[in-house]
Design a protein around this nucleic acid. Sequence first.
DNA 1: GCCGTTTTCGGCCCGACTGTTTTCAGTCG
Length: 598
Amino acid sequence: MLILTMTNLEIAKLLRNVAASYEIKDENKFRFQIIAYKKAADAIQNSSSEVKDLFKEKKLSSLPGVGPSISSHLEELLKTGKVKHFEWVMQGIPKTVFPLLDVPTVGPKKAFRLTTELSLKNPETAVNDLKIAAVQGKIAKIEGFGEKSQADILRAISDFFLGKGKTTRMALPYAFEIAEKLVSYLKTHPSVIQAIQLGSLRRMMPTVGDIDIAVATSDPKSAIMHFINYPYKERIIEQGQESASILLSNGKQIDLMTQPPKKFGALLQHFTGSKNHNIKLREYALSKRLSLSEHGIKKEIANDEWKMKNYSKEEDFYKALGMDWIPPELREDTGEVELAIKHKLPKLVELPDVKGDLHIHSNFPIDPSHDLGKNSMKEMVARAEELKYEYLGFSEHNPSISKHTKGEIYNLISRRNAHIEQIKSHIKNVRIIKLLEIDILVNGSLAVDNKSLELLDGAIVSIHSSFGMNKESMTKRVLQGLSHPKAKILAHPTGRMLNQRPGYDLNFEKIFDFCKKYKKALEINSWPERLDLPDSIIKQAVQNEVKLIINTDSHSVSEMNLMRYGVAMARRGWAKKSDILNTLGYNEFIKWLKGGEL
DNA sequence: GCCGTTTTCGGCCCGACTGTTTTCAGTCG
């Protein structure tokens, strides 16, 4: 049997094309199929498991929005490479339509009309052909289009080619910086009573597309005028009575929404999202004859007669629906609404719960296999004291095995231990733990031998080479590495680098079983490009009662502040304080590290 | 086509903005 190697992204795109085809053919007749296909596409694109794996495990229907019909279509797709039903739906729709959907402001209807009116034939060059038509003034002549739409399409295409706008997502901390700068600019104007960043930023998504800002104002006209005059603006995307969007000179889009202070709670709720969370909330509200929007909650008092109620506080908005306030990190429609109704949301871990950081690279000259830290142990301990940590684990990379003999490695680690003992006498409030970040070699063995390992309180193990191994071999390699009694923590377990590489394949069911049985912990790495584990796997780990440790992987003092991002990932993965080992006090933590019962 | 605190049948979020229109369609979040 042929199992097609289509990625989730490719499959999601195909489903969106099916939805678009339905939309072109008869938007009303296929209304709910359109919604269903889009929803399934979202679920597949956001799924942490590959569709082809889910298919092999007969778990396709576990994806929310994938039911009997779509899952049988996906089966057919993976087995034969095509789907009869999809071909039927797409019949009569030129293939040239689909690439045009990637251009901002062009949806199914416009793409179809442009394709047919301009006789665009080649899907490979469709976007460029459209550009040529626009330059030649052919679009403005089409009925329903005009000079302005032609200019809009032309600009959208050039933005698309430049990679501007929606296609690029930036790392969370970078988005934070841009948003903070803009918020402080907004606050300089008297009409702006409050300005807050919302959307994916407030939900602490690992990457952020557009930056969303909410403003409380009694004078939206002035506030929006101030916003669109932002000095770093390249151009205005849209500007209305209560909202506006601008494009910054760095290619990032900022969306602004305003409401008067008495409605600000509803705006916070609306603009924090996610889209799916809001849809779930509104569907639930509707069942209680309530209608939700950024203006507040409308209640049906008589037949089709609605009365609007305002909310200045977000907490009151949720309360009015009969549910608990939901932390933004959970608002992804993954079960949080149902639990909020039952008042059974978990109490999530918080930054002040963290009692220590175990993944710290100092500049001690241990001649490591990978990069050395920039600051001294003393400097990093001083920062740990400021952060009110009880303990700090030094975990430089192991000495390079290509440059050193086993004996030399033993001596280097011994010297580091001696240095730690020496500085300990000057430290009052922080206990030092002697760790090392050790490579798991291709054959699963550790880059440090047993004798040298005895010098350590414990080891963090991780993959830094041969990322291309297949799922089973990589899983075997990792478990082999973790099986040494000193190996207690698996660092950055998926190896992903956001916007750079996807990370290697691991069988997490096996990893979870092993970790639970042998009391190993998985790291949540706070490094902005890593944020590894991903939130969806954290959630599974928590469900499987696997313990986690949030580390910064700091190579300098300033990076020790990154802990908040690791905590954010833990929260997005529904982790409680009790799931995170470095919320334990020193004695209990050491007991776990040395292999004792918890 | 999916799904369930009211349902295995009968529902399916809500509103802002733009351009080309004199009342709306398309797109977006």
